[in-house]
């Protein structure tokens, strides 16, 4: 959007626009958390510490790519199955890789395909049977959990390929692990796709007004289905990278990621009702959530209070920029 901003815009108004931009607010919050952390516990803001937190944020950030697209696509779009799907992706990947680099590629491709099928089922149910997204994806959570259970027989087996573990854990250029570079490439690519591709503009069109999009010849159903496919595919990808982090899997590996993906999207300024927002905001949202969690655990706050805090943070930010229309206008 900035590219088309008229150059003559008065500076004061321009500053206000930047300062009230959710992306700016979220970035400021992220920086503030690091500063507070450094004060509370010296070393929190150290380079290697921050890089470590960014690495952890990358899993959430990558899983939230699809969530961003789904929420942008509107129609009360939400994918509540991302956590379970990411878990299944990791389970399948671990089984196939089984600790060997020679099966790395297959170990990535197969889970991604599995993800695409899950997303396709979600998308078809939502676009053609018009099942509300949260019901469809919540229902699919049960199915995906069932697939994971049936596939593993209750005990997950297999190990991450060493190359994958290396990508996630070994520090490379500038002492930064490869997974962070993967994330940066994805941030650029996804942001570019949303802003500069026909598919991206169509997602915004569908998200902001489905009726108008349909009447303008934009294939609404196809876009909705693609959004859910993308969601499950990126969930699996995130799950695979998480596997590189943990090396082995368990049956609820990534289950708890669902709420944070939604929270990251909302914190990043994407409108819950769709049509406005982008992935850069989500990526920063993922950083905010991860920094916050680290800070709270540095402060020895138990799991329970961390859960409460992330819920409250989401509510406060929603209250700041996600309120609905009044009845009496």
């Amino acid at each position: 959007m900035t590219a088309m901003q008229s150059p003559a815009a008065p500076t004061a108004a321009r500053w206000r626009a930047i300062v009230t931009d959710p992306i700016f607010i979220a970035a400021a919050v992220a920086v503030a958390i690091v500063l507070v952390g450094q004060l509370v516990s010296p070393g929190f803001g150290a380079y290697s510490q921050v890089v470590g937190m960014v690495r952890v944020a990358s899993f959430l950030g990558i899983m939230a790519i699809g969530q961003t697209i789904v929420i942008l696509s509107g129609g009360d779009g939400i994918d509540l199955s991302v956590g379970k799907t990411a878990t299944l992706g990791a389970i399948v990947a671990a089984r196939i890789m089984d600790g060997s680099d020679s099966r790395l590629l297959l170990g990535i491709l197969v889970p991604v395909l599995v993800g695409a099928v899950i997303g396709l089922v979600n998308g078809l149910g939502i676009a053609y049977l018009r099942i509300p997204p949260f019901v469809m994806t919540l229902g699919m959570t049960g199915v995906v959990a069932g697939i994971a259970l049936a596939y593993t027989g209750g005990a997950a087996a297999g190990r991450s390929a060493p190359a994958l573990t290396g990508l996630v854990n070994n520090r490379g250029l500038f002492d930064v692990p490869g997974v962070v570079y993967v994330w940066i490439v994805l941030i650029v690519a996804v942001t570019w796709l949303l802003r500069r591709s026909v598919a991206g503009w169509n997602i915004y069109a569908v998200g902001s007004n489905r009726v108008a999009a349909n009447l303008s010849g934009v294939p609404v159903r196809r876009n909705v289905i693609m959004a859910y496919v993308a969601s499950s595919v990126f969930a699996c990808l995130g799950g695979i990278l998480l596997l590189g982090y943990t090396e082995s899997v368990f049956l609820n590996l990534a289950d708890s990621y669902t709420l944070p993906t939604v929270a990251a999207v909302i914190i990043g300024g994407t409108l819950a009702s769709g049509g406005v927002g982008g992935y850069l905001g989500t990526a920063i949202g993922a950083l905010v959530l991860t920094f916050l969690t680290s800070l709270l655990s540095t402060m020895n706050m138990p799991e329970s209070w961390r859960t409460i805090t992330s819920g409250v943070v989401l509510l406060v930010l929603l209250g700041m920029y996600g309120r609905q229309r009044k009845l009496r206008t």
Partner: peptide
Amino acid sequence: VIRLQPLIATFATNSVFAGAALVVLP
């Protein structure tokens, strides 16, 4: 009153209440 979307608002309070349950009985 605050007019947040029920889906996401209750999704968020869900984690607040779940955390509170853990506080009461860890």
